[in-house]
Each structure stands twice: as C-alpha cells, then as structure tokens.
C-alpha cells in the first residue's frame, strides 16, 4: 500500500472545521505507519485525540503533562528498549506552547542526550486550545487574546529550529501542511534516522488566526511562498538543505488575508518584510546559497 493511502486518523474528532493541526497529524501518520507510540503533552490535540474511551488515532497515545514532552518520550523509549523493542518509533506530538515555552527544558534536555525519538511541533502560533493566548511562537504583529488592540505582539517569533539545530541533533526540518509530499518525505526520512529528530510543522488555525476555514491550506502555503516559513532541513546541526525556493511573493499578501493581522499599517508590513528578508538571507547563507 502506498503510504499516502494509509489512514490512521478517524473521522468524528472534534478539531475545528479546517483545522491545520489535524491535516498535519493525518499526513504524519500516513508516513509514520502504525508501529509507533505517541506522547501528547497538553495541546489542541489532547482534545482532538478524543475523550476517554474514544481515540481518533489508531496508534497508542500517552497523554502527558504540558512540560513533559521530552521527558515522557525519554521514558517510553527506555521502557521499549528494556523490552527489546527497537522497532517501535517513539513520537512526541506537541503544540508550539508545549515546545517553544512550557516544554522547552524537557525537550532541550532530551535532545541534548540525543534520545532516540521524533519530536514534532505542530505550530499554530499561539495557545489555541485555551483561548488564543500568545506564545513565543506567535509572530511579530499578531493579535491574540493577550496581545490585544494596540498591544499586538511586537516581539519576533522564536526560531525554534535553529535552537534545536544548536543542539547538533541528527535531523531537524520544517514542514508545512500545504506541501504534503515534502512533509511525508521528511517524516519517512526522520523515521530512518537514529537519535533525536525534530520536525517543525506549520499548521494553520482558522479559529485563532481569524481566517475562513476553507483558506487554511492556502494560507499555510503562502507562508512558504512568502519566505515567512521556509522549507528546509538540517542534518547533524550543520548541513542545510533548502527544499523550496519560492517566487518572490510579498509578505503583505499573506498578512492581509488574516484577521489577526488586520491592524497592521503599511509601515508595519514594510518592517515585517525586512525581517522576513533578513531571516531568508541568513538561511541562504547557512545553506551556502545565493538569493
């Protein structure tokens, strides 16, 4: 069976209409296969995975405390190893809050020890499950329920992939729900690597981003097309590969479609464009490429 034809996610889950995180999970499981255990620290998916005794995914799930994504996976891996099971892949599936903020120390610790697991952060750029509070993943310029009105977030988004790359883990990559082939290829690649692997998946959130549900893939795609969320992978913390070189779209095309950015002025958008260009050129330099 083709990996893409495999279906390990069920209908009837309670994700919002158009939820990017569910699309991310669906693609991820298609590429991963059933021989896996998933650790779910608190995030939207803690709810989407179903109230007991239901489950919306067809692999074992361990619901874990918010800050323990890295530590729980370490324990599960150790337990499997003790039983001689090296075949099962251990995965932590966490949101941006559980990765960038609350779970960061456990994650950093685990990857520093090069624990053998895949850590996936599906990034919807705020604490969506608890009511759209800003996280350190919330991008510059965004409205959230804790950065309202003129107090919109005026700090840059943490570059989590670079933080992980700094640990010199064997494999780190970005992926996006609008690029399913690329996403599934990276999951398969990660699965074949030993040690700590990190995949940062961009997953749009119609509810929190104030976008129409039918636009969620389109907008996720635009994040790549505008260089806001470049697709790339880093092996052993040093070897960079940029997977997609977009045509030059302006970031304002992406921003103007989303309610969370509605308050931004042209000057703000120009400033954001500069930040995006700067980050992109920095990435190009790391990959040894020219614009």
């Amino acid at each position: 069976m083709e990996a893409a034809d495999r279906e390990l996610m069920c209908s009837g889950h309670v994700g919002c209409p158009g939820c990017g995180a569910t699309i991310a999970m669906r693609f991820f499981l298609k590429a991963l296969g059933e021989k896996a255990v998933m650790v779910l620290p608190a995030c939207c998916w803690s709810v989407i995975a179903g109230p007991f005794p239901q489950s919306s995914i067809k692999i074992p799930v361990i619901h874990a405390a918010f800050e323990t994504g890295g530590a729980t996976a370490t324990g599960v891996r150790a337990a499997l190893d003790m039983r001689g099971d090296t075949e099962t892949t251990v995965v932590t599936w966490a949101g941006d809050g559980g990765t960038f903020d609350i779970g960061f120390q456990a994650l950093s610790g685990a990857v520093e020890r090069n624990e053998d697991f895949i850590y996936v952060c599906y990034d919807n750029e705020a604490y969506m499950n608890t009511g759209i509070q800003r996280s350190s993943s919330t991008p510059y310029g965004a409205w959230t329920t804790t950065t309202t009105g003129s107090d919109w977030k005026k700090l840059r988004k943490k570059n989590i992939v670079e933080a992980l790359v700094a640990h010199r883990i064997p494999y780190a990559a970005t992926a996006n729900i609008a690029f399913p082939e690329d996403l599934m290829r990276k999951v398969k690649k990660a699965k074949a690597v030993k040690g700590s692997r990190f995949i940062h998946v961009f997953a749009s959130c119609p509810t929190g981003w104030r976008i129409p549900s039918e636009m969620s893939v389109k907008i996720a795609r635009m994040a790549v097309q505008t260089n806001i969320f470049p697709l790339y992978e880093v092996e052993d913390g040093v070897r960079y590969t940029i997977n997609y070189k977009p045509r030059e779209y302006l970031v304002r095309e992406y921003f103007k479609l989303q309610g969370r950015f509605r308050h931004l002025s042209d000057a703000d958008l120009d400033a954001i464009q500069e930040m995006v260009d700067e980050d992109w050129h920095l990435l190009l330099r790391k990959a040894g490429e020219r614009a």
């Binding site: 209908s11 009837g12 889950h13 309670v14 209409p17 179903g50 005794p53 239901q54 489950s55 919306s56």
Partner: peptide, 17 residues
C-alpha cells in the same frame, strides 16, 4: 492503564456543518 476502546467515529460531526 486506561485503554481506549472505540474510535471517534461515533461522533457525527456532520451536524456542525
């Protein structure tokens, strides 16, 4: 160890539409 015993397919989420 709590074990799940059913899928979410019992939830007819089509009613949200």
């Amino acid at each position: 160890m709590p074990r799940t015993s059913m899928t979410t397919e019992g939830n007819r989420t089509g009613s949200w539409r």
